[in-house]
Design a protein around this nucleic acid. Structure first.
Lengths: 341, 341
DNA sequence: ATGAAAGCGCTAACAT
DNA sequence: ATGTTAGCGCTTTCAT
């Protein structure tokens, strides 16, 4: 690989001038020189050495997509369409803006900090973290972050929080389920923080407004297993008999639960209704098609990167910002209308 | 961030010694010194600067996951479970082995070459390329590659080709379909190279052995659109009337086609049968559940990285290698048994 | 408009 | 066992 120094030697100018031409700071260089240098650059197929550039300039043009895994065995968050669509959006915008995307998945925050610092990432898209983890990371790795689906207010300058009106969205979903005649409804999630917590609150509000039970018993915890399995599907099956509808925190889980119940002999939606969340492409494809809440995961990813780039390139303008995307109830076939007689 | 030099200054040794301790070359250093240095390293929370390390050592510990997109608008290959499972496998193994994963998606080979060279990637997992593209890239970017699903023999030393017996697999699938009484069968793919081509050959062999038609007319080209759409679904619908079974080159497409046909009023499998390929989790979840060919995409990713690391760390042992994973026909409900009377 | 030179943090060959 | 030193390729400040 040819270096700037070599190019400079060939053309008979200094490395500074070559560097200036490479970076389009043409006003500093005479047109004739620009042309000469560009010709040689092309001829020798000059390719910058990014390590050298990063070392000298103290940036990296790396945007990290950082995913927190809850369990060590839970190794593949990508199979959830919400995550893959998000990642697609991130990748597209990042590359368009001249950034590279590094993907990292860990359950160890200390290790993560070193990772971010080692690579000197310019910014990160954070998926699956809770507020205190974000603070802890930010304390050491003070750089722009786009935080997906953390609901708490974050007292940080260089961070953009991207989410939904989760509480409202779930509230409307559950109202719809209730309006279909359901009275025994459970809420399924794999934890009780952030969006899961908010959606639970929305669930509970809708339930209590209707005078229905929504205590701890109505909260069913999903334990995701290796890939295609929910490790506690049997438990979910058993508990499902106490309800006529199961409201899940994602399409991905809804689809798993639906299948698990079907495999065990329950009919959906005849015996039991199921609702999802995300309106990922899964929800169209399963039968019955899922009643769900629409959100645009790809757009979340794109926006995350856009905001990240803005903060990276404009450090003075950094401030806390919260972006809330719209949601919409999508009614399909997985919630049965119960005869109200 | 504290540097090696500073650590050296604090402890009162040379940078070499610190570097040796960091890299565990402890036999070169006295136990007492090792301990002293490690204490300070910990105390000051030393984190290496990877740009500097890469520049000095001329490697990067980056494994690139490089995806070729066919069309510019086809921006999200991740939503195909085959790809996300593969990526999950790559990420897991890479991180375990101390490598970082950079994801890149392009349809421009020249740009790709510069990208690889700029980052000085140690190795790449190549997805969606044809042999001549691989050659063209290798000519400029001579480094280990794990090539997924290229069927041609590749005359290259530092490359590992990972695939299936695609032809056989599809042959058995189509024989199964024929054995269910189908005589009018079409094959659907989005191109006619590599695995798609091989599977087509397998399809044709099974058909011609049974004395059935399998010419160009029986090949239906899928044109993938933005995300959830096949842009030529109407055409597929029209042409579907000439067949009783549609054999698709992936579950992902099968599921799209199935839905598209259902939306247009055809019943699956009563009116028309559909088969997939991959045995991704989609195939379990749709109804009718897909008859498909099992393969382990995650394992492909893991193996890709394992082999890549071996080649990176052991340059003398580099050679061409072809790894073929097993497949298995998985019979579910999407192929109807036609009454043979 | 152009160049000289320092230095980013680290590695590794060589010396002691 | 430990230290010296010369880069790796680039950016950037400061001269000219």
């Amino acid at each position: 690989m040819v270096t700037i120094k070599e190019i400079a030697g060939i053309v008979g100018v200094s490395t500074t001038t070559v560097s200036n031409v490479i970076h389009g700071k043409a006003k500093e260089v005479s047109p004739a020189t620009v042309e000469k240098i560009q010709k040689v650059l092309k001829e020798y197929n000059y390719t910058p050495n990014i390590s050298a550039r990063n070392l000298a300039s103290n940036r990296s043009r790396i945007i990290g997509v950082i995913m927190k895994s809850q369990y060590e065995y839970e190794n593949n968050r990508f199979v959830d369409p919400f995550v893959s669509e998000l990642l697609g959006g991130v990748l597209k915008r990042a590359n368009q803006n001249g950034y590279s995307v590094m993907v990292y998945n860990t359950c160890d925050i200390q290790e993560l900090k070193r990772y971010i610092m080692s690579w000197n990432m310019d910014g990160m898209v954070m998926v699956g973290f809770v507020a205190e983890e974000i603070y802890s990371i930010q304390a050491v790795c003070s750089r722009p972050m786009a935080i997906i689906d953390v609901c708490d207010y974050l007292d940080m300058e260089n961070c953009i929080s991207i989410g939904l009106e989760d509480r409202e969205a779930m509230y409307h979903m559950v109202r719809h389920v209730i309006s279909c005649g359901h009275k025994k409804i459970a809420f399924l999630a794999d934890n009780d923080v952030n969006v899961d917590h908010e959606r639970k609150i929305g669930f509970q509000r809708a339930m209590s407004e209707a005078g229905l039970e929504a205590g701890e018993r109505e909260f069913i915890k999903i334990i995701p297993g290796d890939y295609h399995l929910l490790v506690n599907m049997d438990e979910i099956y058993q508990r499902s008999f106490a309800y006529t509808a199961l409201v899940c925190v994602s399409d991905y889980y809804a689809v798993h639960v639906m299948n698990g119940l079907k495999d065990r002999g329950r009919k959906v939606p005849e015996d039991i209704s199921i609702a999802g969340f995300d309106d990922s492409y899964l929800s169209h494809f399963v039968r019955p098609a899922l009643t769900t809440v629409h959100q645009d995961a790809e757009q979340k990813g794109k926006t995350a990167v856009e905001q990240l780039c803005a903060m990276i390139e404009n450090p003075e303008a950094r401030c806390y910002q919260k972006i809330v995307f719209p949601t919409e109830l999508v009614i399909r076939d997985s919630i049965r209308k119960i005869d109200l007689l």
